[in-house]
């Protein structure tokens, strides 16, 4: 019991000692970088619509995302994306490029353990939850709409 008290007290004391960093620079950078990635996406989308005027909106967006995913994996391979992420934080995690980075980075990292056990097995160590949660929730949503549709 005494230990628990001491641990609580120690944790409280440590929290008061943790260096307070100013959040403003990273918040600013995440805003700018995040905004710019979205603007880039809008630009790609507009160019696609100009080049292929008869394409559906949905297909144009799908291609836009594929281009962004390509760019992010490429920059990850060059070792540039993690340096953007260092100062942009959420600005380069939240866009789809962050998803791409989280698949490409472990693949490159674990290449040393071979193609099967390295690249393929470790590919989803970070992005796995995104796909699992996405699939599960889409099935749930589909199920709910299916039930609703029966009435």
């Amino acid at each position: 019991m005494e230990d628990k008290q001491r641990n609580l007290q120690y944790n409280r004391y440590v929290n008061s000692k943790i260096p307070k960093t100013h959040p403003w620079p990273t918040l600013f950078y995440s805003f700018i970088v995040g905004g710019l990635i979205c603007v880039l996406g809008q630009g790609i989308n507009d160019i696609i619509m100009v080049l292929f005027p008869y394409m559906s909106q949905a297909s144009a967006w799908a291609i836009t995302l594929i281009v962004l995913i390509f760019l992010a994996s490429f920059l990850t391979g060059l070792g540039i994306y993690d340096q953007i992420g260092k100062f942009a934080g959420g600005g380069s995690i939240v866009p789809i490029t962050g998803f791409s980075n989280s698949i490409a980075s472990p693949s490159i990292e674990f290449k040393s353990e071979g193609i099967i056990y390295g690249i393929c097995v470790k590919m989803f160590t970070i992005a796995g939850p995104v796909i699992v949660f996405g699939t599960v929730s889409s099935v749930l949503v589909g199920f709910i709409y299916w039930i609703i549709g029966m009435f």
Binding site: I84, G85, G89, N101, I126
Partner: peptide, 17 residues
Amino acid sequence: ERQYRFPLELGNQRPPT
């Protein structure tokens, strides 16, 4: 880094501590 934390190329931030 790769045993305890994240891949080197992942664009994450290191906490201040």
